[in-house]
Nucleic acid binder design. Sequence first.
DNA 1: TAGACTAATGATACCAAGTCTCAATTGCCC
DNA 2: GGGCAATTGAGACTTGGTATCATTAGTCTA
Lengths: 140, 140
Amino acid sequence: MYNLESIEQRLAEQGYRITPSRLAVVEATLEHSGHFSVDDILGRLPGVGRATVFRTMKLLSQMGILCRVLLENGSLRYRVSHRRDHHHHLVCVSCGSVEELDACIAAGAIDNLARSTGYDIEGHWLEFYGRCGPCRSGEA
Amino acid sequence: MYNLESIEQRLAEQGYRITPSRLAVVEATLEHSGHFSVDDILGRLPGVGRATVFRTMKLLSQMGILCRVLLENGSLRYRVSHRRDHHHHLVCVSCGSVEELDACIAAGAIDNLARSTGYDIEGHWLEFYGRCGPCRSGEA
DNA sequence: TAGACTAATGATACCAAGTCTCAATTGCCC
DNA sequence: GGGCAATTGAGACTTGGTATCATTAGTCTA
């Protein structure tokens, strides 16, 4: 869905400079199909500084190209996002692949929740965990 | 709902030793009405070691007395839990108070999700954020 | 009531994830 | 090609949490 050129173009359009480090980070993230950590990217790019990888991934997140994935144990990962609007994830705990879910099942509950609690509800986190089809059949 | 004595009793019943450090940590957590971090507890108990506070809070979490609360930015906090079964939180982003929600709105969606994705769904995270009634009226 | 045995402690080193600083570099526009 | 601001990367720092290990101290039993 994304490729290096299209992201390069979006960076330029938004006034960001095109640098070798930035392109290297973009390229490294595009190679991942599931979720990954900043250190996964750092490990592939020994010539790029730690802070730069963090900065670039933050920038890509702000641009909607990456999104954060919350794992079951509470740690945060990243993944390339193909949906720029609000969505949630279904993460395979075995292979790490991630499905992006198009319907937000929490949306319908928010009005009821606001009424019953008196809160003004502004946001939510929702992530699902399980085992994907291939992982279920591949193991005893 | 909980008090020091009832927790002391539960610790003893489950074969854990009653030590001054443990009781101090329990007491410090009971003083919080909203969510708190390990360092909030550490700050109140300069005589208790860092590792002990972490260990005790982990133990209390396993016993269902504390539960973890995920903040919007992805950081984890703790709170005293009055529900031992599966539940979710509604966190006030202004004052930090936490409502425990009794209905799991995700439960109904899981079957559909499993059918449509082929995943075997084992777990999920769900937290809501907003402003509680007092915080909404107290500020312009 | 005193051992003895083992759980628990706490100092400390370590790890993981992320931010801050700042001098040096380098894209990009003219 | 020059100038300037954005970007870089080294490294120190922060936060949240775990591992190690010698010492201490609950608790059980006699």
